[in-house]
């Protein structure tokens, strides 16, 4: 029975293709979909079928009826629209042939990631403040509470220039001092993006140059709870609305207390995978309350003002998001890599 219905369908559809005007179309309808057509009759005579087969056959016949009705509508529409001449000229295009080539341009994946970060922070009222890359030791270290010969200096391997006291900035943090001195005593909410440099061997995991985005909020009422809330908002925007965060104590000379923020691994939803080393969490950024010495150096009285700061690596974020296993791809600029984004 089911096979018979399928034969009706195949025959009807192939005959429908051959209809060329209103008349042949009407004839087709009366053959296949009128009250006396085999299909409709079979629906009417369901009572003759064994009761256990009835639902399946009824359902199948109705489906075929809908398909044929739909095809009939389409064909009516087609015959109505097209003129005789166009129907004659119609050629069979291989519609799967590739289209004419278009040269598509792209932003570098680092720029794309930076822009996403800019947008999120802009929505939260953080404006972009850029500053120079070749810096003084004073701005890069001393004013950030990292005196000469201090053990904390071990945290940064620095490129020095031939001019004593002039270095390549190791982080965008000198921008904190620039921004504070430009704004004191007004409140600040900025992000500080830009290229930084570290004296390291270039490997799959470490680069001599990398982008960093720092953030700085200063005012008379900025607290650690605000830092947690603001950064969790960022994490949700950057990694998805259900992202959870956690904060671990850490150390940076220019913040106190200092923390590392981890986000729940967005690749495995916290289940544990290769990327998060089965921990379910990814280390995303460092943060903390601005150290009183840094506030003072920036022109804010620490007993009146407080602030928080944070810093993240856009390339690291991109590596996690897109499963990039080698940081050298970023400045390698192989088009076979860049064209994937």
């Amino acid at each position: 029975m089911l096979e018979a219905l399928d034969t009706i369908k195949t025959t009807a559809l192939s005959e429908l293709k051959k209809t060329s005007d209103k008349e042949t179309l009407r004839l087709w309808y009366s053959t296949h979909l009128s009250k006396n057509s085999p299909l409709i009759e079979s629906l009417r005579n369901l009572s003759n079928v064994a009761p256990k087969d009835r639902p399946a056959i009824g359902k199948h016949a109705n489906q075929i009826r809908n398909i044929l009705e739909e095809a009939y509508k389409e064909q009516t529409h087609y015959l109505h629209k097209s003129t005789a001449s166009t129907r004659q000229k119609h050629t069979d295009l291989d519609i799967t042939l590739p289209g004419r080539s278009v040269n598509r341009g792209r932003l570098h994946i680092a720029t794309q990631t930076l822009r996403r970060i800019y947008t999120i922070w802009a929505d939260m009222g953080f404006q972009i403040y850029r500053s120079r890359e070749i810096e003084t030791d004073e701005l890069n270290f001393e004013l950030l509470n990292i005196p000469l010969h201090h053990p904390a200096r071990d945290m940064w391997d620095t490129f020095h220039t031939n001019t004593p006291g002039v270095i390549l900035r190791t982080h965008t943090s000198p921008g904190q001092i620039h921004a504070m001195r430009a704004n004191a005593p007004d409140p600040i909410r900025v992000i500080l993006p830009g290229m930084c440099y570290r004296y390291e061997q270039i490997t799959a995991r470490s680069e001599i140059q990398f982008n960093q985005v720092e953030g700085l909020a200063i005012g008379t009422n900025i607290r650690f709870t605000d830092l947690k809330g603001t950064l969790t908002d960022f994490a949700r925007r950057m990694f998805g609305n259900s992202t959870r965060t956690r904060f671990r104590a850490s150390h940076f000379p220019f913040t106190e207390p200092s923390a590392e923020m981890d986000v729940e691994c967005f690749l495995c939803s916290g289940e544990g995978c290769r990327v998060c080393k089965k921990t379910g969490w990814l280390e995303i950024l460092g943060c903390g309350m601005v150290h009183p010495a840094v506030l003072t150096n920036g022109g804010y009285e620490p007993n009146k003002y407080t602030g928080f700061a944070f810093g993240m690596g856009p390339e690291r974020i991109a590596m996690l998001k897109y499963g990039i296993d080698d940081i050298r791809h970023f400045w390698g600029n192989d088009l076979r890599f860049l064209e994937q984004f």
Binding site: R189, G219, D233, R248, P302
Partner: peptide, 30 residues
């Protein structure tokens, strides 16, 4: 005041960052 900040860090660290709630910034928007 640096010592004060150092001591506050110790308190926060042992109290546990996870026990510190999250808030939105209520300070003046620049």
């Amino acid at each position: 005041e640096i010592g004060t900040a150092d001591i506050i860090e110790e308190i926060a660290r042992i109290w546990g960052f996870e026990n510190i709630p999250e808030t939105q910034i209520s300070d003046l928007m620049p």
